[in-house]
């Protein structure tokens, strides 16, 4: 053959090899600077959350004589208005944040994937589903979460669900847009013409196209879920104060802010750093997996 593999002339070298066919994808991802450093930071936070509580003092042990102490050798992050050790509480809080982030993104992505696939392929359902999603999207997420929690009581599970539901429309819209564009691809039409049935078309030809953008979206949802959880905690609608979470530690620190600002600053910094790590990984994944999906989210 006289023609060499090229990209139909227009822009040489711009055609990116499809991600999933590359056996060294994982290596490729780790080589990306922001994925690497974000990943390291995130791994550190996970280790702290899992193992940290083994080495700290009891985060709910009261010590009224030791109230509102400034950070010192004994209490690295100082103590709160009940004399509890803020460092221990922040370490415990990491668990809640990470669990909420992970659970929300898993829940929202898996449910959204199913709804989006079905609605993208079944026309009758599509109109209804999309109107419901439009409606859901126009309710400010935090208010929706607040309302859901105030009606069902605040537990870890209700908090996760209440944060996940407002995130659903983003996932559904993304999946649906991928389905709608991929189903027009000639290779899908060729599969239809060769008698492949609908479920197989969805699983074999369409589902794989949703994975890369969904992984990216999942990291963003994870980050924003951790923020929402802290806001809920902060305004007193989140996980009850018996279980320390970064949000409710800061909520309790509000009254004493002018006296002891570190009660807010330390968990705040911990939260910001964790979310930053997640978002940086998300940006890196987006750049690596598919630069074109940047606009859709």
């Amino acid at each position: 053959m006289t023609d060499t593999p090229s990209t139909s002339g227009k822009a040489p070298g711009l055609l990116v090899a499809p991600a999933s066919s590359d056996p060294h994808l994982f290596v490729l991802l780790l080589r990306h600077r922001s994925i690497f450093w974000g990943g390291v930071l995130l791994a550190f936070m996970v280790i702290v959350a899992v193992l940290g509580p083994l080495f700290t003092v009891d985060p709910i042990a009261l010590n009224p004589l030791n109230r509102l102490k400034v950070p010192s050798g004994d209490n690295w992050f100082g103590t709160d208005y009940l004399g509890r050790d803020t460092f221990a509480r922040v370490i415990y809080g990491a668990r809640i944040s990470l669990v909420v982030g992970l659970a929300v993104s898993l829940f929202a992505v898996s449910l959204g994937l199913i709804i989006g696939m079905v609605s993208g392929y079944i026309r009758v359902l599509d109109a209804v589903v999309m109107r419901v999603m439009d409606g859901l999207m126009s309710i400010p997420g935090i208010l929706l979460a607040i309302a859901l929690i105030s009606l069902s009581g605040a537990t870890l599970m209700t908090v996760v669900i209440a944060i996940a539901i407002p995130e659903l429309p983003r996932v559904v819209r993304l999946v649906r847009s991928v389905v709608l564009s991929v189903r027009e691809e000639p290779y899908v039409e060729a599969a239809i013409a060769s008698g492949t049935n609908l479920p197989l078309i969805l699983i074999r030809h369409i589902l794989p196209n949703t994975i890369a953008p969904l992984i990216v979206l999942a990291t963003y949802i994870c980050g924003s879920a951790m923020l929402t959880e802290s806001i809920l905690g902060f305004i007193g609608a989140g996980i009850p104060p018996e279980i320390p979470s970064w949000g409710n530690i800061m909520s309790e620190g509000r009254t004493y802010f002018q006296l002891s600002p570190w009660i807010i600053f330390y968990p705040g910094i911990a939260l910001a750093v964790t979310v930053l790590a997640v978002n940086v990984v998300g940006d890196g994944l987006r750049d690596t997996l598919d630069p074109r999906i940047a606009r859709k989210m």
């Binding site: 923020l227 600053f265 705040g268």
Partner: peptide, 13 residues
Amino acid sequence: VGGFSIPVFVLGY
């Protein structure tokens, strides 16, 4: 990316 990561109230304080 920083703006997306810092909670509003922490920034406020």
